[in-house]
């Protein structure tokens, strides 16, 4: 079953006196199967953030149809209750960790979503403890959130989404403001949620190496879907990625150039150490 399905979505930012209207999405269609791990790639202004806004119903599309968790969000008779029901299934983690934490104390913030759902206090307690353990933040439960690092804050935000038991989590550039360490922590948790808990994950990013960890990559360019495939398929054609103003992982670029020189190396190796090992083998084999 598809947890998200979009058909011919278009969206235009209305202009005012000084600015012209900008069409951010043009006829975008795709579907996200339950349990999948998808990355949306695109440079600034490619429409990927607009897509995120539509998916969490902050904005409604001008035309096209959108289904979330089996409910149509764009029908004429879509009510507030439908939107609320969809939000119970699909959660969102935003870019700035500071602007999505509501309560001062870590565990109270994690409980916030569950409290909104009207879950009994004991059950909330249990879910909050579980969610904090899942992101490795149990020891900070009673700490104020402002002393935490960016990566830790983002993990608290993820715990808040996990505690609500959502089937799908969208990460809107959730690692963009983090240092490399925090980025790795958060990506590891995202990957584990998908692989072990079976939660559908959609990450919106402009980091090639993060996208390479997904099962499928959607590349956005100029408001349209520019490419759609596995990381090997998408990055296997660096010329096309460069055309969209995007890069490919450095390992892929290196292997692609070596292939052009006639060396038989795979293009779907995205880990630097793994790539080095394969190259060493190839070179060793020639000797």
């Amino acid at each position: 079953m598809d947890i998200i399905k979009a058909e011919h979505l278009s969206f235009t930012y209305p202009g005012d006196e000084d600015t012209k209207p900008v069409q951010a999405l043009k006829d975008v269609s795709f579907s996200i199967p339950e349990g999948s791990f998808t990355a949306v790639l695109g440079h600034n202004g490619s429409g990927k953030s607009t897509l995120a806004k539509l998916l969490c119903m902050i904005a409604l599309p001008d035309s096209g149809r959108l289904w979330i968790a089996g409910r149509e969000m764009t029908a004429d008779d879509t009510t507030e209750e439908d939107i609320l029901a969809a939000r119970r299934e699909v959660g969102m983690v935003f870019q700035n960790p500071d602007n999505q934490i509501v309560a001062t104390i870590v565990e109270e913030d994690v409980a916030f979503g569950c409290e909104n759902l009207g879950i009994p206090p004991k059950e909330i307690r249990r879910r909050v403890d579980e969610a904090l353990a899942a992101v490795g933040m149990s020891e900070y439960a009673r700490h104020p959130s402002y002393n935490l690092s960016g990566g830790q804050k983002q993990r608290v935000a993820i715990a808040g989404v996990i505690a609500m038991r959502r089937r799908c989590i969208i990460f809107d550039e959730s690692t963009a403001m983090l240092d490399p360490m925090g980025r790795r922590e958060v990506m590891d948790i995202i990957e584990r949620l998908n692989r072990e808990e079976g939660i559908t994950v959609l990450i919106i990013t402009h980091h090639m190496n993060e996208a390479a960890r997904a099962d499928r990559i959607l590349v956005m360019n100029g408001g349209r879907i520019f490419a759609d495939g596995t990381p090997a398929e998408v990055f296997g054609n660096p010329l096309r990625m460069w055309e969209a103003g995007l890069d490919v992982p450095q390992t892929t670029e290196l292997c692609w150039k070596l292939r052009a020189d006639g060396l038989d190396v795979p293009l779907d190796v995205f880990d630097a150490d793994e790539c080095a090992r394969i190259l060493a083998e190839k070179i060793g084999g020639r000797r």
């Binding site: 119970r88 959660g91 602007n99 409980a111 916030f112 979503g113 409290e115 909104n116 206090p121």
Partner: peptide, 26 residues
């Protein structure tokens, strides 16, 4: 700007006001 982003984040976490809300720490 922060207020705007926070309001969006709260909405995405199903916040609809005090009605029907429970508390973890009573």
């Amino acid at each position: 700007r922060r207020a705007d982003e926070l309001a969006t984040a709260m909405e995405c976490r199903c916040y609809t006001g005090g009605e029907g809300r429970t508390r973890m720490n009573t």
